[in-house]
Each structure stands twice: as C-alpha cells, then as structure tokens.
C-alpha cells in the first residue's frame, strides 16, 4: 500500500510563504538488514521526491538508505497563483506514486 498525507493550506494570499508537509507510507528498506534466515533483504527505498506547482518544479529531494521509514518531508514555497500542486515519489523499482492538492490564491 502506498498512502500519502499532504498538508497544503487550502487558501493563501499572493506572495505568501506557505509550508507544505508530506508524509508517505514506505518501508525504506536499506538493503543492509538481514532477515530471519540471515539473507539480506533487498534494498527498496524511495529515491526521489519532486513537487511541481502548476507544472513548475518548486522542490526536489534525493532520498538515501539512512532515511527512516515513512518519510516526512516539509518545505516552503511562495503562493503565486491558484492551481494544483503535484507530488511525485519515485521508488527503486522505477514506479512512482503521485498525489495532488489544490490551492486557491487570492
């Protein structure tokens, strides 16, 4: 299951600095951990996170094996116009999980 929680203010004034908080469920398996039989559990992490605001990239992060499970990422951006924020988490398997949130800028 991938499940994400996004916290974006629903309304903002133009030029306002807004905080965006994201949380996604993911095991962030490091690849260094042995299972009960002593075999290494294959690495499975989210390695990239991108946020776009009406198509323009406003935040990007590379994630590494030392990051805890269920990564929580929080950042700031400037509210420029009403529209949609798109959040994309990409895993080691190349698959992406996408979540959207809309914001009204007055």
């Amino acid at each position: 299951m991938a499940r994400a929680l996004i916290n974006v203010p629903a309304k903002a004034t133009r030029g306002q600095v807004i905080e965006i908080k994201t949380l996604i469920s993911h095991p962030m398996e490091t690849g260094y951990r042995p299972d009960y039989n002593g075999k290494l559990v294959p690495r499975d992490i989210i390695n990239k996170f991108v946020c776009t605001y009406n198509g323009t990239e406003v935040f990007r992060a590379d994630l590494h094996p030392a990051i805890a499970a269920n990564p929580f990422i929080s950042f700031y951006t400037v509210a420029t116009e009403s529209g949609v924020l798109t959040f994309t988490w990409t895993g080691d398997d190349g698959k992406s999980f996408v979540e959207k949130a809309s914001i009204t800028v007055a």
């Binding site: 299951m1 499940r3 929680l5 996004i6 916290n7 908080k21 949380l23 469920s25 269920n70 929580f72 929080s74």
Partner: peptide, 14 residues
Amino acid sequence: DDRTANPGTLWVLE
C-alpha cells in the same frame, strides 16, 4: 499532535 505529521494516521486510514 499534527495529524498530517503523525505516521500513525497512515494506519488509521488503512
């Protein structure tokens, strides 16, 4: 306290 920062919420939703 912050529901969107509390990872337990992921299990509640599930």
